[in-house]
Deep mutational scan, measured.
Amino acid sequence: TFELKGKVGKVVKIAEDHYLVESEGDKWIAYSDEKLSLGDRVMVVDVDGLKLKVKRIP
């Protein structure tokens, strides 16, 4: 299986209740415990079905 946990991506869209993150050339629906901005670099900390939980990284 394709393992996304630990992968790095970038926030490419902000929606009302989720983010769109591009990682490894694909776009994924993501959510975070912190507020993210367009262009933020993020790391995948968990995968919930087809949704990614991400956190901001420097």
Rank of each mutant, 00 (worst) to 15 (best):
K13R: 10
A15P: 03
I14P: 02
V12S: 08
V8H: 05
I57A: 09
V44S: 02
D48T: 08
I29A: 10
L36H: 03
E16P: 09
S32D: 03
D46I: 04
V11T: 03
L36I: 06
D17I: 09
V12R: 04
V54M: 02
G9V: 15
A30K: 00
D46H: 04
A15N: 10
V42L: 02
I57W: 13
D48H: 07
K10V: 07
K7C: 12
G49S: 06
G25V: 04
R41M: 13
L36Q: 02
P58Q: 10
D40R: 01
G25I: 03
V45E: 14
L20V: 09
I14H: 06
V11N: 00
L20P: 00
E22Y: 07
V8D: 12
I57V: 08
A15R: 12
E3N: 01
V45C: 05
L50M: 09
L52V: 07
A30H: 00
V47L: 13
S23I: 15
I14W: 09
Y19A: 08
E3Q: 02
L20F: 09
I14R: 08
E24V: 04
E24Q: 04
G25L: 04
D26F: 13
K35E: 08
M43P: 00
I57L: 10
L38E: 12
D33A: 07
K51F: 13
V21L: 06
K53N: 12
G25Y: 04
K10M: 08
G6Q: 01
K53D: 09
G25D: 06
V11H: 00
S32A: 12
V8W: 04
K51N: 10
E34G: 07
A15F: 09
E16L: 12
Y31M: 14
E3P: 15
W28N: 02
M43A: 06
K51I: 12
V11W: 00
D33Q: 08
K7Q: 04
E24G: 04
S23K: 01
K51L: 14
K5G: 15
V54E: 00
E16F: 11
Y31S: 09
V44H: 01
D17W: 07
D46A: 04
K27A: 09
E34C: 08
T1C: 15
L52P: 06
Y31H: 12
L52C: 04
V21P: 00
I29R: 11
D46N: 03
Y31I: 12
V8G: 03
L4I: 14
R56A: 12
K7S: 10
V44Y: 04
L36T: 01
T1D: 15
D17L: 09
Y31K: 11
W28H: 13
R56V: 09
K5C: 15
K35G: 10
I29Q: 12
R41K: 12
A30Q: 01
V21A: 05
K55W: 08
V21E: 00
V45G: 03
E16C: 12
D40G: 03
G49Q: 08
E24P: 03
V45I: 06
T1L: 14
V12A: 05
S37G: 06
L52Y: 02
V12Q: 06
R56I: 13
H18V: 11
D46E: 06
A15K: 09
D26T: 11
K53R: 12
G9M: 15
M43Y: 08
V11S: 00
K27P: 04
D26G: 07
V8K: 06
E24M: 04
S37M: 10
E3T: 01
L36E: 00
V44R: 01
G49N: 12
I29F: 13
L4R: 02
V47Q: 07
K35Y: 11
A30L: 01
A15M: 09
D33T: 08
K53S: 13
S37H: 05
L4C: 15
L50T: 07
E34A: 06
G25K: 05
W28E: 01
Y31N: 14
L36D: 00
D17H: 11
K27F: 10
L4P: 15
G9N: 01
V11P: 00
L4E: 15
V8A: 05
G39A: 10
D48P: 03
D46V: 04
V8P: 13
E22I: 11
H18I: 12
K51V: 13
V12T: 12
R56L: 14
V44T: 03
D40F: 05
K53C: 10
S23N: 04
V8L: 14
M43W: 12
S23M: 15
K55H: 13
Y31T: 13
L4H: 05
L52N: 03
E22G: 04
E24L: 05
S37K: 05
P58R: 04
G6W: 02
V47I: 08
D33I: 06
V8F: 04
L38W: 13
D40A: 06
S23W: 01
K5V: 15
L20R: 06
G49F: 07
E24C: 10
M43N: 04
R41T: 12
A15W: 13
V47R: 03
L4A: 14
E16A: 11
